[in-house]
Amino acid sequence: MKRPRSKSPTLDEARLRQQAIGVKLRQMFEEVVNEPVPDAFLDILRRADQRRSEEA
């Protein structure tokens, strides 16, 4: 967050606000990324792989 100050304080302020929104956006996304993966997802991959072995 530490950047050299530019001549315009409003530009700095705008940049700060955009950075804060960016932090929040990533946090919103990461919340779901960090959830445990439901078993259904891994089951799908397991079954798909089984079908493939049977076909082979």
Binding site: V32, A48, S53
Partner: peptide
């Protein structure tokens, strides 16, 4: 070789599940 490739694909896909959900 095909099965090794599928295995690699499968584990890479599994790692992406949290991102796809998000």
């Amino acid at each position: 070789a095909a099965s090794d490739r599928d295995e690699t694909f499968r584990s890479e896909l599994a790692e992406l599940i949290p991102h796809l959900r998000a």
